[in-house]
């Protein structure tokens, strides 16, 4: 299954996180943070599970439905941020009310890195364990490889699909929460910048191995960060970074051919 709706789950996750923070102004920061994470994961999970459910019960292709749901999610997001959930004080950039400085995710002591990175790494490790070390993960991989075979051996394909979609959405929702709680402090249009799409590529580059996602995502961020210098030092347009990223992706994806042919690149069973 290919779902390209992470962006939708991300923005709604961010929205849910800041909405829940609005309702608990006096709670302890840790409680608020946990509530935000949970709300974001539920929102994200529900959104992508919707695509999975449509696939399962109505046979709607999940690739399209999740893509359409991205646009719908962004519309709902904008509608609420500029309407019901708007902080009246956010005059010229409509936003939800600030979650409060105390509730922000801080930085890891001694570094400039905020705790979002830890969230991400934990999620990667959990996903790795789930996919490669549990029966459930094994079932998912079988269903992902061949639906007919999975049905034949009696796997509950529908439930697997729904849960998998839910988990995928939950992690995208969590990314939205991290963006709100570690960076912006509120939900506004700055959340909609296309992380969801980059995420898909990261997944492919990491060859669907959650642990490999960590270095891939870090390297990708590094290329993005160096873009400014290309503009200022070499006078190259900002699009240079995009071209560079595209070329690197193409090169890496093409190198897939070499797996199994060169002795030091072993092909991992998918």
């Amino acid at each position: 299954m290919v779902v390209i709706g992470g962006e939708g789950a991300l923005v709604l996750g961010g929205l849910a996180a800041s909405a829940i923070a609005m309702t608990m102004p006096s709670a302890a920061p840790l409680v608020v943070q946990i509530a935000m994470a949970v709300a974001a994961m539920i929102a994200g999970a529900a959104w992508i599970a919707l695509a999975g459910g449509l696939r399962h019960w109505r046979g709607v292709n999940e690739t399209i439905s999740s893509l359409l749901l991205v646009y719908i999610a962004i519309a709902v997001f904008n509608h609420l941020v500029e309407g019901l959930l708007r902080d009246p004080a956010s005059l010229n950039k409509p936003s939800t009310p600030n979650i409060g400085d105390a509730n922000m995710l801080g930085t890891i002591p001694g570094t400039d890195i905020h705790w979002g990175l830890a969230y991400g790494i934990i999620a990667c490790v959990l996903a790795y364990i789930l996919i490669y070390r549990t029966t459930f993960g094994f079932g998912m991989r079988v269903a992902g490889g061949n639906v007919k075979a999975a049905r034949m051996v009696g796997l509950p394909v529908g439930r697997l699909v729904l849960v998998a979609c839910g988990l995928a959405g939950a992690s995208a929702g969590l990314a939205g929460m991290v963006e709100v709680a570690a960076v912006h402090g509120k939900a506004n249009a700055s959340l909609i910048v296309g992380y969801g799409y980059t995420g898909i590529l990261v997944a492919f580059l990491a060859r669907h191995n959650p642990l490999a996602i960590i270095p891939v995502a870090i390297q990708l961020g590094g290329i993005g960060a160096s873009g400014g210098l290309l503009q200022r030092r070499l006078g190259l347009p900002d699009a240079t970074v995009l071209v560079l990223q595209g070329l690197i992706f193409i090169a890496i994806l093409t190198s897939e051919v070499l797996y199994g042919r060169l002795p030091w690149l072993k092909r991992r069973p998918a």
């Binding site: 590529l201 699009a239 240079t240 970074v241 995009l242 071209v243 990223q245 595209g246 992706f249």
Partner: peptide
């Protein structure tokens, strides 16, 4: 990504 980048 490459196409958009190259076009820009």
């Amino acid at each position: 990504l490459f196409g958009i980048g190259l076009a820009f």
